[in-house]
Computed example of a mutant assay.
Amino acid sequence: MNIAQFIISIPLFMVLFFGIGFILNMLLKTTWLPSVLSGGVFLIAWVATGGLKWVDIVILLSGVLGGVLSSVAIRALRRHGYRMF
């Protein structure tokens, strides 16, 4: 993998999982479901390939971080009175 692809992939996966998690939180009204799902994606990728390289682990963990951040953002919005979330 090229170093430019690696550097671009990290924020891309983070934003992608954050956006998907945020939409799931709004539609399903669950808080931690995206975090669990993104962790599940990581584990499925690990098992399906029989092991991952460090580059793949870093990229997928940035996606898990994006899922966790979407849950934290929705929780903060609910705490501040936004009932539509």
Rank of each mutant, 00 (worst) to 15 (best):
F85Q: 00
A73C: 09
G63Y: 00
I10A: 03
I57M: 14
G21L: 07
F13C: 01
W54V: 09
R83C: 00
G39Q: 08
I59T: 09
L24N: 01
L37K: 10
V58Q: 06
R83T: 10
D56A: 14
G50L: 12
I74E: 12
V15R: 02
M1F: 05
I57W: 08
S9C: 02
I23A: 12
S71T: 11
S70E: 03
V41T: 13
R79C: 00
I10W: 03
K29D: 04
L27S: 00
P34Q: 04
L43Y: 12
D56T: 12
M14S: 11
I74R: 09
V47Q: 15
I3A: 08
N2T: 13
L52V: 04
L24K: 00
I57Y: 10
H80W: 11
T31E: 12
L24H: 00
S62G: 05
Q5Y: 08
R75V: 00
G50M: 11
L24V: 10
S62K: 03
N2P: 14
S71Q: 06
I59W: 02
S9G: 07
H80K: 13
T31V: 13
K29H: 06
I44A: 15
Y82T: 08
S70G: 05
I8W: 11
L24S: 03
Q5C: 01
V15T: 10
R79A: 13
V58N: 05
M14W: 09
V72K: 14
W32P: 00
I74A: 15
G67P: 13
F42M: 13
S70D: 04
I7Y: 05
W54H: 02
I74D: 12
G67F: 01
